[in-house]
Write a protein that binds this DNA or RNA. Structure first.
Lengths: 336, 336
DNA sequence: CTGAAAGCGCTTACAG
DNA sequence: CTGAAAGCGCTTACAG
C-alpha cells in the first residue's frame, strides 16, 4: 500500500501539502494540485484509516449494537439495521456491528479502545445493562427503544401509546364493543421491552374510555406453543369481534391459522396489528396496521448520533415518532 | 482516555515494559507485573485500537459483506451473519458490516484504507462484480457462495448437487414417479446465484436416472405473484405426487396455501425442501428438508479467513459442505 | 528482567 | 502557496 510519503515524493512536494490537497483545508496552486492528483492516481493512494484515526481522534465508524431479545422475532431486527447502515454510509461512516451476549463488555471493549466515534443501541429495554457502561464511556450514543431512566441519553422510539389510541379509536369507529389483545411474550415483558406495556396500558385505558371490553393474552413466540395458543384464541373468541395483535411472530402465523379455520377477515373477525410495510410484504399480511417505520426510526437515530459526534451537544432527550394507521381493509363493522 | 504512558508513569516503568506485560511477549518480574496491573486497573487503561493497528498492521476487524440479491428472502441472510459474528468474536475479531449497493467501491474503500484484516463475502454469485476488486486488493478473503472463476479464492458452499441427489433418492425410495420442482426465482438465476442451477441440474439428472418425471417452475418471491403461482401449482398437480421447493419465500408461504386447500401432507402430497433448522422453526415448517447449515458455512468461512490472516497461506480453494437430510415426516409413499 | 528509541502513516499548528 | 516538525499511542527490534 502506498503511503502519503510515496505520493509526496512522486509529486515532488511535502507530505503535508498532499494532506492539505486531499482535505481541501488550505489553498493549493493548480499546478501542484495536478501533480498530486496524478501521483495519487498512479499509486492508488488511500490514507490509512488507523493512522488517520490516531491523528484526528476520529474513526468514521459507528458501533451498531443489535440485540435479539429472548423470544423476539429475528427478521424484525434486520429492518432497522439496513436503513441505519445506509444512513451512516451516506454520511461517510462505516458500521461496526456488535452482537454479543455480553453487552456491557462489548461496549467497553469497543468504546474504550477508540474503535468507534459513537454507538447506536437497538432494542433498548427498561433497565438495560448496557446503559451503565454507556454512561461511563462518555461517548455519543443514540438509542432505539425506551429505557426506564433516560437521563442524559438520546432516545427515539415509536409513540406506542398514541399507536394504541389510534387502534382503539379505529375499532370504536366501526362499532366494536369487545376485542382480544395479543401482546408481546411474557419473556419480552420480563426483559423490560417497554413497547409491550406502553402499548398495552394505553390500549386498556382508551378501551375503558370507549367502554370496549378487552381480553389480553401475552403471546407465545415459538412453535408449537404459538399455534396452539393462537388457535385456541380463534376457536374461543366469545363475544370478541376483533383481534389486535402486537406480536411479530403471532401476526406472521395468523393468516395460515385463519384460513385453516375458514375465518374470513373482516367478515367474521376484524384484525389490526403493528408492523412495517416491509414486514407485511414479507409475510403477505393483509391486515390494517400501525406502520412501525423502522427505517424512519433508524435514520432518526443516525441523525441524532451524528449531531452529537459533530459536537452539537444535542443530548437529544426522548423523541417519540408519531405512528400512522395504514388501512388494508381488515377492519369493518362487526356482523354479530 | 488513559494512554500507555500514563500507565507507565503510574507504575514507575517504561511504556515498553507495560506493552510487554500486557502482551506477555517477554518475561516480567512478579513485582513489576503487579505494579503494572494495578496501574492498568486504576486508570482503566485499554490500548487505542488505531495506534495498535498502525504499529502492528493488524486491525483485528474483519469486513463482512452482506448482499441481498434482488428477490431473495431477507431473513435467510441473518442466519449467516450471526454465527459469523460469533465465530469472529471468539477469535478476538470484530465485524465491520458492509451492505452497500456498490460492492466493488465498498471493498476498495475499506480494503485500501486498511480498516480490516480480511473479508468475508456472502451470497457470492457467478460473475460477482466484487471479485475483480478483491483480487486487486490482495487481502485475505473467504467467500460463501460459488463464483464462476474460483482461481485463487477460498470458497465454501453447500454441496447442492449432492443435496439434489439426496432429495431425489428420498422420493425414489418411497416410490414417487412424478414431481414438481420449484427453483429460486428467475431473477436469482439471472443474477448468477449458482446454487439455483447446481441444485436443479443435479436434480434433473438424478431424476432421469430413476425415471422420475419432473415439472420445473422458477418460483416467484414476492406477493401476490407468489401466492397465485404456488396456488396454481397446487391446484394443478397433474400426476405429481410430490413437491420439491428450493425457494425460501415459497416454502415459507406453503403451509398456509396447503391448509387453505385442505391438502394434507404427506397423505395427499409429499413435500421436501431446503432450509435451516432455524428457518424452519421461524416459519413453523413441518417439512422434511436438506439442512442448509448456515452456521456451519459461516463458521467455516471465518476459520478459512483466519487461517489466511495468520499466514497459513492456505488459499483454501473450494470446499463443498456435505448436506444432510432431516426427516420431518412430510414424505411418504404416494397414495395415487 | 527492563529501558530508550525508532517507526507505523497520518494531520495540523508553526513558520516562512 | 508550501515545508519541516511535532504529535497521535502503540509495538518491537536493539541494548544492556
Amino acid at each position: 500500500m502506498a503511503t502519503i510519503d510515496d505520493v509526496a515524493r512522486l509529486a515532488g512536494v511535502s507530505a503535508s501539502t498532499v494532506s492539505y490537497a486531499m482535505s481541501g483545508k488550505r489553498p493549493i496552486s493548480a499546478a501542484t494540485r495536478a501533480r498530486i492528483d496524478r501521483a495519487v492516481q498512479e499509486l492508488g493512494f488511500t490514507p490509512h484509516a488507523g493512522a488517520r484515526a490516531l491523528a484526528t481522534a476520529r474513526t468514521m465508524v459507528i458501533g451498531l449494537f443489535v440485540q435479539f431479545l429472548a423470544s423476539e422475532f429475528p427478521p424484525a431486527m434486520l429492518q432497522y439495521v439496513l436503513p441505519i447502515a445506509d444512513a451512516a454510509r451516506e454520511a461517510g461512516y462505516d458500521i461496526l456491528m456488535l452482537t454479543e451476549e455480553d453487552g456491557p463488555a462489548a461496549l467497553r471493549r469497543v468504546g474504550s479502545t477508540g474503535m468507534v466515534d459513537g454507538f447506536i443501541l437497538l432494542n433498548v429495554v427498561d433497565r438495560d445493562p448496557r446503559l451503565a457502561e454507556l454512561r461511563r464511556l462518555h461517548q455519543p450514543a443514540a438509542l432505539v427503544g425506551l429505557p426506564a431512566d433516560t437521563e442524559g441519553l438520546s432516545v427515539v422510539d415509536l409513540d406506542f401509546a398514541a399507536a394504541a389510541r389510534l387502534v382503539v379509536d379505529r375499532l370504536h369507529a366501526d362499532g366494536h364493543r369487545s376485542t382480544v389483545l395479543i401482546t408481546p411474550s411474557t419473556e419480552v415483558i420480563a426483559m423490560g421491552g417497554a413497547y409491550a406495556w406502553r402499548f398495552r396500558d394505553a390500549f386498556l385505558g382508551r378501551a375503558a374510555e370507549h367502554g370496549i371490553r378487552v381480553r389480553t393474552h401475552a403471546g407465545a413466540t415459538i412453535q408449537p406453543e404459538l399455534g396452539e395458543q393462537l388457535g385456541g384464541i380463534l376457536d374461543d373468541l366469545g363475544d370478541a369481534t376483533s383481534l389486535v395483535v402486537h406480536n411479530d411472530a403471532q401476526i406472521a402465523a395468523l393468516p395460515s391459522l385463519l384460513s385453516a379455520r375458514g375465518i374470513e377477515v373482516p367478515r367474521d373477525l376484524s384484525v389490526i396489528s403493528l408492523f412495517s410495510e416491509e414486514f407485511g410484504r414479507l409475510f403477505s399480511l393483509p391486515f390494517t396496521s400501525i406502520e412501525t417505520g423502522p427505517d424512519r426510526l433508524g435514520r432518526h437515530a443516525v441523525a441524532s448520533l451524528l449531531a452529537q459526534i459533530d459536537g452539537a451537544d444535542d443530548a437529544g432527550g426522548v423523541s417519540f415518532v408519531a405512528p400512522a394507521l395504514v388501512e388494508r381493509g381488515s377492519v369493518a363493522p362487526p356482523s354479530r
